[in-house]
Design a protein around this nucleic acid. Structure first.
Lengths: 112, 112
DNA sequence: CCTTCATTTCATCACATCATGAATCGTTTT
DNA sequence: AAAACGATTCATGATGTGATGAAATGAAGG
């Protein structure tokens, strides 16, 4: 396979493996948004279908303010989108990538 | 202090959508571990092949202690595994699930 | 307009996380 | 055995994050 030592090769340490710092930060930020049990729970519930804030608050047992803050973060990372219907604002997953991300994480943990 | 709003359907609020709290916490913990630019950078580098701590420290420009702490977290979440070779300890990605997770996050961000 | 209901924003505080240097550990080399 | 080297652990201080109540926003209906 690959046998790399500490010897001098006279070349740059090839940093090109990494994407731009801004992209790195964005990706990390997105993952951090999902990396909270309460927010992850919201995303899992939304996989089952859209919900309004009151419903999410009832299902989690937390206050609406608390849930709203969680949703604010998820929205800022474009993980969820909203739809207004009268007094209610319904939340849903932004796209398929989100579902995949969640499922991948869940299966990785379950497969231990 | 929580009463059911909206219309009464006389049924349970179907909590079965969610996995056990322990699993939720585990998954969130895992995602949080990846949700840091420096640790994500390490994982991306390891996608290119295994590396020892000194190499990772050199490539990131941070101290070995700092890098070691990052690796400790990644190891505790079973995202990376180690192999000892003399004085060096080489790190590599634990499995292909990790790669998928990272790639998914990166593409989701890049596709914006 | 005034009220009510659903949601958001704001300010705050407790708590978690991260980087870092010093001390320590485990191998290899002399 | 001692020194050198690579890596980890420990303690700490700065910074970030999350929950929460009170106040603000905004739509719907009297």
């Amino acid at each position: 396979m690959k046998e790399r030592e500490h010897e001098e090769c006279g070349h740059e340490p090839l940093r090109s493996v990494l994407p731009a710092p801004a992209l790195l930060e964005q990706a990390a930020s997105l993952l951090r948004a999902v990396g909270d049990p309460a927010r992850l729970a919201i995303l899992l519930r939304l996989e089952d279908g859209e919900r309004c804030v009151t419903e999410l608050a009832a299902e989690s047992g937390d206050g609406m303010s608390t849930v709203s803050q969680r949703l604010r973060l998820l929205r800022s990372e474009r993980l969820v989108t909203t739809r207004r219907d009268g007094k209610h604002i319904y939340y849903r997953l932004a796209d398929e990538h989100v579902s995949e991300l969640i499922r991948n994480a869940m299966t990785h943990v379950a497969h231990d």
